[in-house]
């Protein structure tokens, strides 16, 4: 959670694997108090919309969609991988952010040397990841970095940046959006799931037979 007031950033961060929902609203309350900004004075809101853990992404979006509704202010959604890329220093090499989403799936996005997106976020396997990339030296960030670097240590170099997106970078990316975008953004942002829900239809072979089956 980060807030900009008159140029100054006031932020708070708690790393957690569980309990976002319980922690998030008290944190928003705390940061606003610390900044001495009443909620009613917030002018613009931004939130990450994934990819990430389904529940975590939904908790963030629920909170911010609720705030946007109640405050009647614009809300923009920013990609998590873009936020992670924003933590990297500018370079003459492109950057790939790869987050290990298990089951040989990586949430990934490619950026240029200025850390601007060259592709949309997508989910792919380790093999698929390699085929996405130019055959040149490339910086790698995210929890999937070590797996990718292990495939070709000459070509890939892991960046030493945090594996988690930081709210201050969400703030900076949101501030870089044009006034046109802020003027037209709707509040109903959807998560970028990149993965279908786990759901299986009943197996017809295990069903009882009916006379009408023929």
């Amino acid at each position: 959670m980060a807030l900009r007031k008159n140029g100054e950033i006031i932020s708070d961060l708690q790393e957690m694997t569980r309990g976002h929902a319980e922690a998030l609203l008290p944190m928003i309350e705390r940061v606003c108090e610390q900044a001495q900004v009443p909620m009613s004075q917030l002018q613009r809101l931004a939130v990450t919309h994934g990819p990430g853990t389904f529940t975590g992404v939904r908790v963030g979006l629920s909170a911010m969609r609720g705030l946007a509704l109640a405050l009647n202010v614009p809300l923009c959604a920013i990609g998590t991988l873009h936020v992670m890329a924003a933590a990297a220093a500018v370079s003459d090499q492109p950057l790939i952010v790869a987050v290990d989403a298990r089951r040989d799936t990586y949430y990934t996005q490619v950026f240029d040397g200025q850390n601007q997106p060259l592709s949309a976020p997508q989910a792919c396997s380790l093999a698929g990841l390699e085929s996405l990339l130019p055959d040149a030296a490339i910086r790698v960030a995210g929890s999937g970095a070590s797996a990718l670097c292990a495939t070709d240590a000459q070509r890939f170099s892991a960046l030493d940046i945090a594996d988690h997106p930081h709210a201050a970078h969400v703030l900076r990316l949101a501030e870089a959006l044009s006034d046109d975008i802020w003027a037209t953004t709707g509040p109903h942002h959807e998560p970028l799931y990149l993965r279908p829900p786990d759901a299986s239809l009943p197996n017809p072979d295990k069903q009882l037979r009916r006379l009408s089956d023929g």
């Binding site: 929902a21 998030l24 609203l25 928003i28 309350e29 909620m39 009613s40 389904f54 529940t55 939904r58 908790v59 629920s62 909170a63 911010m64 969609r65 609720g66 705030l67 509704l69 109640a70 405050l71």
Partner: peptide, 20 residues
């Protein structure tokens, strides 16, 4: 179901916080 509960609960808290 925890996934659904979190959405209703978080949305409601945010609205309550914003509307005081």
């Amino acid at each position: 179901l925890i996934g659904g509960l979190l959405i209703g609960l978080t949305t409601a808290k945010a609205i309550a916080l914003a509307a005081n």
